[in-house]
Design a protein around this nucleic acid. Sequence first.
DNA 1: CTAATTCATAACTCATTGGTTATTGATTTG
DNA 2: CAAATCAATAACCAATGAGTTATGAATTAG
Lengths: 107, 107
Amino acid sequence: MPNTFDVLFKTLADPTRRAIFERLCRDGEQTVAALTAQAGVSQPAVSKHLGVLKQAGLVLDRQSGRQTHYRSQPAALAPLLDWTSQMAGFWESRFDDLEQLLKRMDN
Amino acid sequence: MPNTFDVLFKTLADPTRRAIFERLCRDGEQTVAALTAQAGVSQPAVSKHLGVLKQAGLVLDRQSGRQTHYRSQPAALAPLLDWTSQMAGFWESRFDDLEQLLKRMDN
DNA sequence: CTAATTCATAACTCATTGGTTATTGATTTG
DNA sequence: CAAATCAATAACCAATGAGTTATGAATTAG
């Protein structure tokens, strides 16, 4: 049972996959063919990456005839922001602790 | 030639390794033995994870006799914050583009 | 000095995963 | 209808990586 952070980090750890996601963030909705043209890997590879991104909630798809259009869902990045600032936060709060400790030692 | 983002995402994608990093953020400097006691994996496994975290710049180590003390370096998370907010930013700016486009179409 | 402790490294195993080609189902197009 | 296009899936392969046990180097303790 991998948690949200696992899924997000693992999904974004692959450079090819992350590049696809970045492209969707930058340039908006794209078809699989359009993404494949830039990805540097085969169409099935791109499809697999899109499947992983979709599982992670990072992209949404829309069918239209024989094409599938994918778009990013950047809201799914929220937990990542939370986690990162929390880690930085722990750091600061430890400094606060130290500060308070030093103050108390001053008296 | 993996870039900074690759390294960061890959390093944090493993749950055991991320847990070690979280612990260091939360509780401050720890010895390898202390980390091993909580990690649920063997000491060599912990040492390997610490090596990876160190390579990524996420932790620093300090030798003292036969013990090695590790501490987190949360500043190394900065690129992650940047990347994440940039991706969210692209999204918004595309909305802005759309907004401006619609305004222009209004005239 | 010897024994114990701490951590890193080596050597290995097994599972995961990112890639490939081949194929198929579904839709357009001629 | 026949041919072409689009994307997903299947089957397979090779590389990576996280774990293990065994060992060694350095330090501390008895």
